[in-house]
């Protein structure tokens, strides 16, 4: 069990590291593309396209890690006004709702991914790019987000601090 949880954490952080690496890649790709253009070469169109796709991948790869880091902003209004016992209940309830939303999107994302394979769908830009390579990120991202939010439902830590304001 402990090994499983360590393996899972490795995946979660591994995905975040990959997101960070892609952010650096975006910078390199733009610089290369401009550089090539200005020395009279034709920039590879995939450089440009890869930066657009990177926006999706970065978001999907990093979002579950950010849940663990409590980095998704939320507003503490109701939770700040409640007595502690009730606040804990509401906080866990909100986390549960987040698990639900994530699960629905993971499930629908998985269906979308399957449809894209069955229909042989392409994303049409400079290249024809198989769509499933993009949509496969949905079940992974939202699946992991569901797990991370469920830690705030069942775990010792709460999502909400009880202090008024917007929180990270």
């Amino acid at each position: 069990m402990q090994q499983l949880s360590r393996f899972y954490s490795l995946i979660l952080y591994g995905m975040a590291v990959l997101a960070g690496a892609m952010l650096v890649w975006v910078m390199i790709a733009v610089i290369m593309s401009v550089g090539m253009r200005n020395i009279g070469m034709q920039p590879w169109a995939w450089l440009f396209t890869s930066t657009e796709y990177a926006m999706l991948y970065i978001t999907m790869l990093g979002a579950p890690w950010l849940v663990r880091e409590k980095g998704h902003v939320h507003i503490e209004l109701v939770t700040a006004a409640l007595p502690p016992a009730l606040r804990r209940l509401v906080s866990r309830g909100v986390a549960l709702a987040c698990v639900l939303v994530s699960l629905i999107l993971a499930w629908k994302g998985f269906e979308l991914f399957q449809t894209n394979i069955a229909r042989n769908d392409y994303d049409v830009r400079a290249y024809y790019f198989p769509r499933w390579i993009l949509t496969v990120s949905f079940p992974i991202c939202f699946g992991l987000m569901a797990i991370e939010f469920s830690r705030f439902v069942f775990g010792t830590e709460l999502m909400h601090s009880g202090e008024a304001g917007i929180h990270e």
């Binding site: 939770t79 509401v90 939303v101 629905i104």
Partner: peptide, 18 residues
């Protein structure tokens, strides 16, 4: 309503979208 009860903003949008 979702934002007021403290759901993360992004998740509130996604839930409302669903």
């Amino acid at each position: 309503a979702l934002m007021a009860i403290g759901m993360p903003v992004a998740l509130a949008f996604l839930a409302a979208n669903i």
